[in-house]
C-alpha cells in the first residue's frame, strides 16, 4: 500500500508496539502477559511495517528468515529446559541467579523462546500471504 499517512504513523507506532511487546514479555512472569501475547504484539508490528512499506522492505528489516527465528525460539526453549540438568533437577525446573540483585531465571529464558517462536511463525505466515496477494 502506498500511503504517506500510514507509513508516517507506522514509523512511530511500530516502535511503540515492539517496546510494548517486550514489556508484556518481561511482566508476564507474575502478571498477565508473557511470551505468547508479547510475540503476537511484536508480530503485528512487523505486519504493520509490511502493509505500510511492502513485504520486501520488511524482509530487509528482519535481516534473518522468519522461519529461522521460529527455530531459534524452539532451541532457546529447549536450552532453558536443559539448564536444570546442571543442578541434577528434572527437565524444565526453574533455575535462578541474582546478578546484582536482579532475579534472572530459566522461566524467563523459556518465555523468550516462546516469544521468538510466535514472532517467527506469525511473521512467516503473514508475509507469505501478503506476497501472494
Amino acid at each position: 500500500m502506498n500511503s504517506l499517512i500510514l507509513s508516517t504513523v507506522a514509523r512511530a507506532v511500530i516502535a511503540l508496539m515492539v517496546l510494548f511487546s517486550l514489556y508484556l514479555l518481561i511482566r508476564g512472569h507474575n502478571l498477565p502477559g508473557g511470551g505468547f501475547v508479547g510475540g503476537l504484539v511484536a508480530a503485528s508490528a512487523f505486519l504493520l511495517h509490511a502493509i505500510a512499506n511492502g513485504v520486501p522492505a520488511t524482509r530487509r528489516l528482519l535481516r534473518v528468515d522468519p522461519r529461522a527465528i521460529t527455530m531459534i525460539g524452539v532451541a532457546v526453549a529447549i536450552i532453558a529446559g536443559l539448564v536444570a540438568a546442571f543442578q541434577g533437577a528434572p527437565f524444565l525446573t526453574g533455575v535462578w541467579a541474582f546478578p546484582g540483585g536482579v532475579p534472572l531465571g530459566t522461566p524467563l529464558l523459556f518465555d523468550v523462546g516462546v516469544y521468538l517462536v510466535v514472532v517467527g511463525a506469525v511473521v512467516t505466515l503473514v508475509l507469505a500471504l501478503e506476497e501472494d496477494a
Binding site: 527455530m71 531459534i72 524452539v74 532451541a75
Partner: peptide, 22 residues
C-alpha cells in the same frame, strides 16, 4: 532418571531445529 523420559521428546525437537538451521 527423569532425563531418560525427556530425551525421546527433546532429541527430535533439537534435530528439527538443527535441520532447519543448516
Amino acid at each position: 532418571m527423569s532425563w531418560l523420559l525427556v530425551l525421546p521428546i527433546a532429541i527430535p525437537m533439537a534435530t528439527a531445529v538443527l535441520a532447519l538451521l543448516v
